[in-house]
Amino acid sequence: MTRGFAPSLPVEFPKMGSFRRPRPRFMSSPALSDLPRFQAARQALQLSSNSAWNSVQTAVINVFKGGGLQSNELYALNENIRRLLKSELGSFITDYFQNQLLAKGLLFVEEKIKLCEGANRIELLAEVWDHFFTETLPTLQAIFYPVQGQELTIRQISLLGFRDLVLLKVKLDDLLLLAQPQPPSSIIQMLLILQPGATPGSDPRS
């Protein structure tokens, strides 16, 4: 009797590794939906490190602190802005002015008003408005004169900024009660200019 052989079981051998070289992994690029935000952040970084823009930024903050422009400084600032407008940063200047420079400058104004208490605050607000409207605003318009053709002008952006970042934060209703029977004429002028639709042409957007 011949002895039978046990059926052979399949034997699995470990597979040899692939000789292909691993594909290099690169840093992922921003998704298409994030590109506008990515580009805006990159432009903001480039703008903040640009020497021409730094001179403009320094001048604007100095104006908000009550300083003026030096002799021939306005010409140099205009030339710097013209140079920036011709670069890839040109379309970003207005946004940066509104969201960074103007906001920072008006913060100084708001803090100055809040340091004053009681009935004296509305007198200080009138004084601050007079200076802003007759000194700061024309200087800002002069500095950014080369910026043309935007949806809102530098004047309109600045007036809207004063309304939103200063006037709406100082509890004007309470101040007007303290100013009875008649608020200062500068306050009346301010309300006519900053309150949309109050009088023809009073809307800062017009």
Rank of each mutant, 00 (worst) to 15 (best):
R21G: 06
V170L: 06
D34G: 01
S186H: 07
Q148L: 09
S8K: 13
P14A: 15
M190H: 01
G197A: 10
R21T: 09
G201M: 09
F38Q: 11
R155H: 09
P24R: 15
I187K: 07
P146V: 09
S18A: 11
A126M: 10
L115Y: 06
L125H: 04
S29Y: 11
S55R: 12
V11A: 13
Q46T: 07
F64G: 00
S158Y: 01
L69N: 01
I122W: 00
S185N: 09
F5V: 12
L165D: 03
G201T: 02
S8Y: 05
S28L: 15
T139G: 02
A52Q: 14
P22H: 11
P196Y: 01
L140I: 06
T136R: 01
R82T: 09
K112P: 00
I157Y: 01
V60N: 00
Q156W: 01
L9K: 12
T153W: 07
L107F: 08
P184H: 03
G4Q: 13
L85M: 13
A76G: 05
Q189F: 08
R155W: 04
Y75F: 07
E88P: 09
Q57R: 14
L160Q: 08
W53E: 02
R121V: 04
L124I: 12
F5E: 13
P36I: 10
Q46A: 14
V60G: 02
T199Y: 10
D203S: 14
N72V: 08
A6H: 07
T2Q: 11
R121G: 03
S51Q: 14
P30V: 01
I81A: 02
L84C: 02
A40C: 05
P196V: 00
L125D: 01
E110M: 09
R25N: 10
W129T: 01
F97M: 06
S202D: 05
L89Y: 08
I193V: 10
F38V: 14
Q148C: 03
A179Q: 00
S28N: 06
M190Y: 03
K169E: 12
Q46R: 15
F108K: 05
I157F: 00
R163K: 14
R42E: 10
K104E: 14
N78T: 07
G197R: 05
I157A: 04
G90A: 02
K171G: 08
F13G: 01
Q141M: 15
